[in-house]
Amino acid sequence: MSSQAVVIKKSKLLNEEARLAYILLAPAVIVLVAFMFYPIIYVFLMSFFDTDKLGRLRSFAAFKNYKVLFQTKDFWTITGRSILWTVIGVTTKTLFGLIIALLLNIEYRGRKFARMLFIIPWASAVPISAMLWQWVYNPEFGLLNFTLQATGIWKNPPIWLGQPISAFFACMWVDIWIGIPFMSLVFLAGMQAIPNELYESAYIDGVNSFQKFFYITLPGITELIMIATLLSSLWTFNDFNVIYILTKGGPGGATDILITSVYKNGFEWLKFNIASVMAVVTFLILAIVSIVYAKIYFGRERK
């Protein structure tokens, strides 16, 4: 009898707690539903309809838009390029990040200052950085080509944003440049968490620097590398600002990736149905990667 009373009291308490939780969560959830979930659902809906130039739904088209898009060669080129963009971007960011983290992990005076300087590209506003780079890349008056020529590093530098291949790599580099600091900081923090005794005993055993790196440092931050590269691949894949500001996807579509193509199809060419199909494809790719990230994140929290 008494135990039953306790159970009732407890469940009543739980209810009260749950009610408070729902009240506290309600505003955030309502806003997210209205301005995030509803728009996503609407994009899914739009992808199954014919739309007019104002983006209004005209008639149900079933999978017609998907068929049209999947049959255009451009779509596959752009998808392939998005994957290439992400793979090159994330790999290069990771390599630079590792090198810089290793350099910042050495003790010397001014290390903190160097760390601060390395952060600047991440701390800056992406759109503004992209505009600065546009000026840097200027073929006639820009200081990049001038410096390359003056120092003899590259006698005939390309007109960076004017030709398809160089434009792709020029955009690629700006995206990489923005993403390096995050990688460096995460890896550095990971390296600093590795107990010093490991290095000391390795020193006694006469291990050289390369062995130290491959047998102690790298295994110590493997999990972090996974999380950081996953996050970075989402950001890289999503990088709209750099490409749009530098080239708008040009010249001749040579720098378009899915994310810029969605925007251009919608806001410039007013093909809202095609834009939404692309958005759906992009969404599905991102959702898969996000769920993997969440799984790893929760996995490590439980430990």
Binding site: I40, Y42, V43, F237, F240, Y263, A275, L286
Partner: peptide, 8 residues
């Protein structure tokens, strides 16, 4: 990505 939903 904001781009996915910017149209709607």
């Amino acid at each position: 990505s904001p781009v996915i939903v910017v149209i709607s």
